[in-house]
């Protein structure tokens, strides 16, 4: 059911943006404790959510002060991390391991954001890498049990597959 796949991802994207705006006002800048980063774990439960997360990042950054910069680099960061996680855990069933791999990918690829700031504003690379990586590590780390718990109640895969 293609329409459902499309619409569900669009709504997930809208939810990502809404949570970014409403729950965490300090979302843009060097140190990000973006609560909506827990959404990245959705791809662990079903890889079809990747497109929704990507759309969410796109829309959220459409209104960021840096505009196109944040769109290109933010989208690259999320998509590359999520795809890397999916490829690395193709044969892994355990969701905890998949979430841990997901976090490592997001932490590692944070250099894309640090590189963005280095490239555009000659900002200190390692310092920003540290800030962004720390933000991802903390939020996604605490997000692990949270998303696991939410999944037990909501069953993300069922919604996407329509079972």
């Amino acid at each position: 059911m293609k329409t459902k796949y499309l619409v569900t991802n669009a709504i997930v994207a809208a939810l990502y943006v809404a949570v970014t705006v409403v729950v965490a006002p300090i979302s843009y800048g060097a140190v990000q404790f973006r609560l909506s980063e827990v959404f990245n774990h959705l791809a662990v439960f079903n890889k079809k959510y990747i497109i929704g997360i990507g759309t969410g990042v796109f829309v959220a950054n459409l209104f960021s002060p840096l505009g196109w910069y944040d769109i290109v680099f933010g989208l690259a960061h999320s998509l590359i991390s999520l795809i890397a996680m999916t490829l690395l855990t193709r044969h892994v069933k355990n969701e905890w391991i998949k979430m841990a791999v997901n976090i490592s990918m997001f932490v590692f690829f944070s250099f894309i954001i640090a590189w963005e700031l280095k490239l555009a504003f000659d900002a200190p690379f390692w310092l920003n890498y540290g800030f962004v990586a720390l933000g991802e590590l903390v939020v996604m780390g605490i997000g692990m049990p949270i998303m696991k718990y939410v999944n037990d109640k909501v069953h993300f895969t069922q919604y996407m597959e329509g079972k």
Binding site: T8, L35, I146
Partner: peptide, 27 residues
């Protein structure tokens, strides 16, 4: 930060459920 994150559980569950229902109706 732990307590703040924990507080979002009772937010996320109803939010996801109502959003997914909305998506289903829209589709």
């Amino acid at each position: 930060i732990f307590q703040q994150m924990k507080a979002i559980v009772p937010l996320l569950i109803p939010l996801f459920v109502s959003s997914f229902n909305r998506a289903e109706e829209l589709a």
